[in-house]
Design a protein around this nucleic acid. Sequence first.
DNA 1: AAGTAATTGTTCTAATTAGAATTATATAAT
DNA 2: ATTATATAATTCTAATTAGAACAATTACTT
Lengths: 158, 158
Amino acid sequence: MLSQSTFPTVLRQLLRTHQAFLSYAARHVHPLDLTLPQYDVIITLGNTPGMQPKKLGEETLITKGTLTGVVSRLEDKGLVERLASKKDGRSQIIRLTEAGQAIYERTFPEHLVFINRLFDDYTPEEVSRLEADLVRLHRAVVTARGDDVEEPAHEFQE
Amino acid sequence: MLSQSTFPTVLRQLLRTHQAFLSYAARHVHPLDLTLPQYDVIITLGNTPGMQPKKLGEETLITKGTLTGVVSRLEDKGLVERLASKKDGRSQIIRLTEAGQAIYERTFPEHLVFINRLFDDYTPEEVSRLEADLVRLHRAVVTARGDDVEEPAHEFQE
DNA sequence: AAGTAATTGTTCTAATTAGAATTATATAAT
DNA sequence: ATTATATAATTCTAATTAGAACAATTACTT
């Protein structure tokens, strides 16, 4: 078996599953005239007093350069608003407007039903195990990423 | 904890792990002056006589509209070439040029080492189980999506 | 054979993406 | 305090992304 010369199928399957899930979730979100990242921001802000872009990006896995644009489009739609922080001149609070909160309350319960349908045939233990396995792989990736510094760059200090 | 009102953490973890893996893989690919999708095309075409864009897209999970651009950029770099099919006027064959094949041969072995490092702490059984669990979830998504039976049970090994 | 339907690939668009450079502000060090 | 460093968010760029519309070609139906 020449599995040594092929790309690990487990990783290909990770990509495939990820992609399939996104296209599934989009079915529920696109009819709301929202993109997936936009809806992700809304459900992350739902039932919160708002949060800084930095934290919002960490929660949604959207990098900051991207987040600026996503939030701006939601602002244009009147679904979120940016408030300047008084404590920190660099910082903001992003929160849902009333219209944004209304969308959240109206759609999120059914979104959860829609998503959880995927696990109809799973026992809670099976879901937990899958999650634990994904956490383990994630940890392996982060570890490898941190350990894999070919050029430590210790010699060149500015 | 109001876990009923929160997004399933197993899916969030799927997205997180996927993202971490891509950024890890990019470390090895970007120094080659290639994007991840571009490199994916190259390793998919490696050691093959070439293939149609349709199949190439299925293998790499790149949708056709995107694939046109990815292939064009690789063509500009002289790494792949498009050949018109004589049997089917709509169709093409995309294959590596000599330069593309050279990059493949020079980099893919070390790329595999780089990637397989993620599973250093896994037993083969653990990898198989994770893959099977991902296949199961993928199947659940496709089933829920409802557009089943587009792909015959031809799940060949890559 | 003629007309209809399906397939292949390109083009077009709006949005996302990561990464780098930039601006503005805050914190730390001396 | 003054300088240096770190952080927060925006801006900029090239590429990818999905989806829709399109042109060209092939396959099917009658």
